[in-house]
């Protein structure tokens, strides 16, 4: 460890070059933007949810154990970008009680296995949670198109809420 000698660095570079060229994968399309102002609170949210999820799994294993009831929930994401779908799937496997079982790339749909989901309301909560995580990631590193879509959606929701409040009054 801590060996920064030229031989070591060159050998590492060679291995990286060989891996990148011999095991060729489709290039990752970067969106060209990265918003640090959203990334820092996202890391905080991630760590908080990681702690909550870990203790939840611990608690469920102790109290429910073999009687656990689960669900496989389909969640359609907004973004079509491979990178964003991958990052969202990664984040989801680690934070709420979910695990990516299958990905439909053509429709950006994730199929998640979720612990302790007994009712459709539970599944709806998972869906909104997943879309909230995706919204965070779009704000951090999504393409401008996805960001515009998200902002339209947020505005639409706000207007709907205001209209409902107006009707109630």
């Amino acid at each position: 460890m801590q060996d920064f000698s030229p031989g070591n660095l060159i050998f590492g570079g060679l291995i990286a070059y060989a891996v990148a060229n011999l095991l060729y994968l489709p290039p990752v399309e970067l969106s060209g933007r990265f918003n640090v102002l959203y990334a820092v609170p996202f890391i905080g949210r991630f760590l908080y949810k990681l702690v909550v999820a870990s203790f939840e799994v611990f608690w469920l294993s102790l109290t429910q154990g073999p009687r656990l009831v689960n669900a496989v929930v389909a969640v359609q994401l907004r973004s079509q970008s491979d990178l964003l779908v991958t990052v969202t799937g990664h984040a989801l496997s680690l934070i709420p009680g979910s695990l990516v079982v299958e990905v439909d790339r053509s429709t950006s749909t994730l199929y998640l296995h979720c612990l302790n989901v007994k009712t459709p309301e539970g599944a709806a909560k998972i869906r909104s949670d997943v879309r909230a995580t995706e919204a965070w990631l779009i704000r951090i590193m999504g393409t401008p198109d996805d960001l515009a879509l998200l902002q339209t959606e947020v505005r639409f929701d706000q207007e709907n809420e205001e209209r409902e409040e107006g009707i109630r009054k």
Binding site: V69, N70, A71, V72, V73, A74, T119, G122, A123
Partner: peptide
């Protein structure tokens, strides 16, 4: 043990 399975339908 599954209360719902939306992948199975697909």
């Amino acid at each position: 043990l599954l209360s719902m399975d939306e992948l199975d339908e697909v």
